[in-house]
């Protein structure tokens, strides 16, 4: 009946008795959290910091489906098929500075192992977009049903404030359309016609770009964004735009 535990006389059992698998899992989790697991570069430490934000961003999904993309950054080999597919699908003009999506290259010469990685970028379809706030005429707006940031071409006055406001360099002025142009997750060219993914995700041979529904617990993007073993992050979280494009690797 004596339930009092004598704390002062408890002995340290050590970790020898913890099963091997449990220890491994625990270490793995710790490493994932500190970022060492993700590759050991300084950047990955930053990435894990961001992943905390990523799960915050993921708490609310006001749209059904809540379109989202996860980039498996480590898989990207810069074949640029995504870019070609985007250009062909969305009629992006072949002039300098005109693109809806591109691939950035990062080199870490003093990294252990691989020293080069590729970072695909596109419009982050932010939950709190800067571009739509600054547009004087609502020419760019966050669509109420899809959550995609769209353009109403006829209203664009070409002041380019949205380009200044976007923290992701996702916008350019399209001289052919006479309006600012941007990625719309292929809304007009694919999704609204019943296709299930974007042209870039469809064209990617390395399964880098995973397109899906963040509000669906069975969806791949949901599962990747909500696990805690691998770091998931967003670009430029300090801009506070709550992006819907996530990054992961390893």
């Amino acid at each position: 009946m004596n339930k009092n535990i004598d704390l002062n006389n408890l002995q340290n059992e050590g970790v020898e008795n913890v099963p091997m698998q449990e220890r491994r899992d625990f270490l793995k989790m710790g490493l994932a959290i500190t970022g060492i697991f993700a590759g050991g570069s300084l950047f990955s430490a930053v990435s894990t910091f961001n992943s905390a934000h990523a799960s915050d961003f993921a708490k609310k999904y006001p749209y059904k489906p809540h379109y989202s993309m996860v980039m498996q950054q480590h898989r990207c080999i810069d074949c640029e098929r995504c870019m070609d597919a985007c250009v062909a699908t969305n009629h992006v003009p072949n002039v300098h500075g005109a693109y809806r999506t591109t691939i950035l290259e990062k080199e870490t010469p003093d990294a252990v192992g691989g020293k080069r990685e590729f970072i695909p970028i596109l419009c982050n379809q932010c939950n709190l977009p800067q571009c739509t706030r600054v547009c004087p005429t609502k020419a760019t707006y966050k669509d109420k049903t899809t959550g995609i940031v769209l353009m109403d071409i006829k209203k664009c006055i070409g002041c380019l404030t949205c380009q200044e406001g976007c923290p992701y360099n996702a916008r350019y002025f399209n001289e052919e359309k006479k309006a600012v142009d941007k990625c719309n997750f292929c809304w007009d060219t694919r999704l609204s016609k019943g296709e299930k993914d974007t042209a870039c995700a469809h064209a990617c041979p390395a399964d880098v770009r995973i397109f899906g529904d963040l509000s669906n617990q069975e969806d791949r993007v949901f599962k990747i964004v909500h696990q805690i073993e691998k770091a998931v992050w967003v670009l430029r979280p300090e801009a506070g735009t709550r992006p819907n494009v996530f990054y992961t690797k390893g």
Binding site: R133, C135, P136, T137, K138, A139, I157, C159, T161, F173
Partner: peptide, 26 residues
């Protein structure tokens, strides 16, 4: 400087964005 100033004359009036500083400024 603005690429399509004639559109501004129309849409600033019939599609104002009240969160836009550039709209208020104009």
């Amino acid at each position: 400087e603005i690429k399509l100033p004639w559109r501004m004359a129309i849409w600033n009036v019939i599609s104002p964005n009240l969160t836009s500083n550039i709209w208020w400024m104009g």
